[in-house]
Amino acid sequence: MENQNVIESANTLNVVINKVLYTGKVHVSGGREGFAKSSDGVLDTALSSPGSTGKGTNPEQLFAAGWAACFIGAMKHNAPQLKIALPVDAAIDAEVDLALADSGFNLQARLNVVLPGLTYEEAKTVVEAAHQTCPYSKATRGNINVQINVAI
């Protein structure tokens, strides 16, 4: 692309990145009624607005899937250090709302974490640790309403 100018390049959290582990690259055209394709071609999907009859997924579903997958990864990362055996059938039902507030459009989310076989204290411990280390949790902390529910 020609004539690229940086509009924003702020390190507002003063986080120093030591090493980039992965960069997800996705080209989107057409917005909510468009298409999304990753640079490796694995993601190649139509997009549609929430509640529409379009045949594609929507950004809220993609965000929910990404956050849930990342959060489970964070639980898997933290569980051994906490000496908690994470159940193989650990799951998350993630819900991301597109909402309207006084300030305009906003998101809010609920992560319904299911950890069968753990005690409530074990589940709470691993979920709290994951919420501190999951990059999606870090990105949303203080920015959107988040509710985390735990079922055992």
Rank of each mutant, 00 (worst) to 15 (best):
residue 142 G to Q: 04
residue 145 N to L: 11
residue 32 R to L: 13
residue 66 G to V: 02
residue 57 T to E: 07
residue 117 G to M: 01
residue 113 V to A: 05
residue 135 P to D: 06
residue 83 K to Y: 04
residue 67 W to D: 03
residue 108 Q to R: 14
residue 37 K to Q: 15
residue 122 E to S: 08
residue 80 P to A: 03
residue 106 N to H: 12
residue 106 N to G: 00
residue 11 N to A: 08
residue 11 N to P: 06
residue 123 A to G: 15
residue 130 A to N: 01
residue 81 Q to M: 08
residue 74 A to T: 04
residue 62 L to E: 02
residue 40 D to H: 11
residue 135 P to K: 08
residue 92 I to T: 03
residue 55 K to Q: 11
residue 58 N to L: 10
residue 73 G to K: 10
residue 57 T to W: 07
residue 126 V to Y: 09
residue 94 A to L: 00
residue 117 G to T: 03
residue 106 N to W: 01
residue 46 A to C: 05
residue 98 L to D: 07
residue 106 N to I: 13
residue 54 G to N: 09
residue 145 N to Y: 05
residue 148 I to E: 02
residue 67 W to V: 00
residue 130 A to P: 00
residue 133 T to I: 05
residue 149 N to L: 12
residue 46 A to W: 06
residue 127 V to C: 14
residue 66 G to T: 07
residue 112 N to T: 13
residue 147 Q to V: 14
residue 124 K to D: 15
residue 100 L to K: 15
residue 68 A to G: 14
residue 81 Q to L: 12
residue 34 G to K: 07
residue 148 I to T: 15
residue 103 S to K: 14
residue 31 G to W: 01
residue 34 G to M: 12
residue 37 K to M: 13
residue 57 T to V: 09
residue 150 V to F: 06
residue 7 I to A: 08
residue 103 S to W: 01
residue 118 L to C: 10
residue 31 G to H: 03
residue 17 I to L: 13
residue 139 A to N: 00
residue 128 E to Y: 06
residue 9 S to E: 10
residue 118 L to Y: 05
residue 12 T to H: 10
residue 137 S to G: 05
residue 89 D to Q: 15
residue 13 L to F: 05
residue 7 I to H: 09
residue 149 N to V: 14
residue 88 V to K: 13
residue 116 P to N: 01
residue 77 H to C: 04
residue 46 A to V: 09
residue 25 K to E: 15
residue 39 S to P: 00
residue 24 G to Y: 07
residue 56 G to C: 05
residue 26 V to N: 08
